[in-house]
Simulated scan of single mutants.
Amino acid sequence: MEEPKKPTKRKDQIRHDEEVAQRLQDQMQAELEEEDRLVRQRKEEANIVLWDNVQAMIDVALDAIPLAIKSPSIIDWKIHKEGKKSYYQIIRIDGSSKMYLVFSHMLKSFDIKDLETLYKLVNAKYGSTRPVEDLDLVLYRDLKTMFEPHVEDNVWKNQSNYRVLDWKLYDSCGVHSLRKQNVHIHMLVEKRYPLTAPTITDMLNRKLQADHWNEMCYQLLKLLTKQLKNQ
Score class of each variant (00 low, 15 high):
M1T: 08
E2H: 07
K5S: 07
P7N: 14
P7G: 12
P7R: 10
T8V: 11
K9V: 06
R10V: 05
I14C: 00
D17P: 01
D17Q: 13
E18H: 09
V20R: 02
V20Q: 00
A21C: 03
Q22K: 09
R23S: 10
Q25V: 08
Q27L: 15
M28N: 09
L32F: 07
L32Y: 03
E34V: 15
E34K: 14
E35K: 15
E35D: 12
D36W: 08
D36V: 10
V39S: 05
V39Y: 09
Q41S: 14
Q41K: 15
Q41N: 14
R42K: 13
E44T: 10
A46P: 01
I48K: 02
V49C: 11
D52I: 04
Q55H: 07
A56P: 00
I58V: 13
A61D: 04
L62D: 12
A64D: 15
L67N: 11
L67A: 13
L67R: 10
I69H: 03
I69F: 13
I69G: 02
I69P: 00
K70T: 15
K70G: 06
S71Y: 09
S73I: 14
W77R: 05
E82Y: 07
G83N: 05
G83C: 11
K84E: 11
K84Q: 06
Y88I: 10
Y88P: 00
I90W: 00
R92L: 14
I93M: 10
G95E: 09
S97Y: 08
K98P: 00
M99N: 14
V102R: 03
V102E: 03
V102Y: 01
S104E: 07
S104Q: 06
K108W: 05
K108N: 13
S109L: 11
S109W: 02
F110W: 04
I112T: 11
D114W: 02
Y119N: 07
Y119P: 00
K120R: 09
K120P: 03
K120V: 12
V122T: 11
N123Y: 08
K125I: 12
K125T: 15
S128K: 15
R130T: 13
V132M: 06
D134K: 11
L137H: 13
V138C: 05
T145Y: 00
F147V: 11
V155A: 05
W156I: 12
W156P: 00
K157T: 11
K157M: 15
Q159L: 12
R163L: 05
K168W: 03
Y170P: 01
Y170G: 03
D171W: 01
C173R: 05
G174F: 02
H176E: 02
H176C: 12
H176F: 10
S177K: 05
R179G: 05
R179K: 14
Q181I: 11
V183L: 04
H184N: 09
H186Y: 09
M187H: 02
M187R: 01
V189F: 01
K191R: 12
R192T: 09
Y193T: 09
Y193Q: 03
P194I: 13
P194F: 12
L195W: 01
T196H: 00
I200K: 02
I200Y: 01
T201F: 07
M203H: 01
L204R: 01
L204P: 00
D211Y: 06
D211M: 12
D211L: 11
H212S: 15
N214F: 06
E215Q: 14
M216F: 10
M216S: 09
M216K: 05
C217A: 06
Y218T: 12
Q219E: 12
L223F: 07
L224W: 04
L228C: 09
K229N: 07
K229E: 13
